[in-house]
């Protein structure tokens, strides 16, 4: 799936998975598509970003914990797609 997306993006063809999350459940053999919207309160890509460089990633720790007061649930929580740890 990721490989197909790469080829499509490189060639500029089709509809890439931008703003859509595709989830796959192998046991139930079901795919589900969830629309994703940009979060205006996102500290990185929101309207008033607080992350402007990678300094929060330096010296270890804290980089993931940047959520603002309003920006804490995230889109995934509302659509019930828990993050997957593995690669």
């Amino acid at each position: 799936m990721q490989a197909t997306e790469v080829v499509k993006l490189l060639l500029g063809i089709g509809e890439p998975l931008v703003g859509r999350l595709l989830t796959y459940d192998a046991l139930g053999m079901r795919f589900r598509e969830v629309k994703l919207r940009r979060d205006p309160t996102c500290p990185l890509c929101g309207t008033s970003p607080t992350i402007k460089d990678l300094s929060i990633h330096m010296n270890g720790g804290g980089a993931c914990e940047i959520a603002t007061e309003r920006h804490r649930e995230g889109v995934a929580a509302t659509v019930g797609a828990a993050p997957k740890p593995g690669g």
């Binding site: 799936m1 990721q2 997306e5 790469v6 993006l9 890439p16 998975l17 931008v18 703003g19 859509r20 999350l21 595709l22 989830t23 796959y24 459940d25 192998a26 046991l27 994703l36 919207r37 940009r38 979060d39 996102c42 500290p43 990185l44 890509c45 929101g46 993931c64 914990e65 940047i66 959520a67 920006h71 804490r72 649930e73 995230g74 889109v75 995934a76 797609a81 993050p83 997957k84 740890p85 593995g86 690669g87």
Partner: peptide, 29 residues
């Protein structure tokens, strides 16, 4: 081009700067 898996479940999406959300929009923490 983002993907992740756990046991029998997986997910994929594309984060295109300024054209759609980013990983932090999806998972703030």
């Amino acid at each position: 081009v983002h993907g992740s898996i756990f046991q029998f479940e997986g997910m994929a999406t594309v984060f295109a700067p300024n054209a759609g959300p980013c990983y932090r929009c999806l998972y703030p923490t």
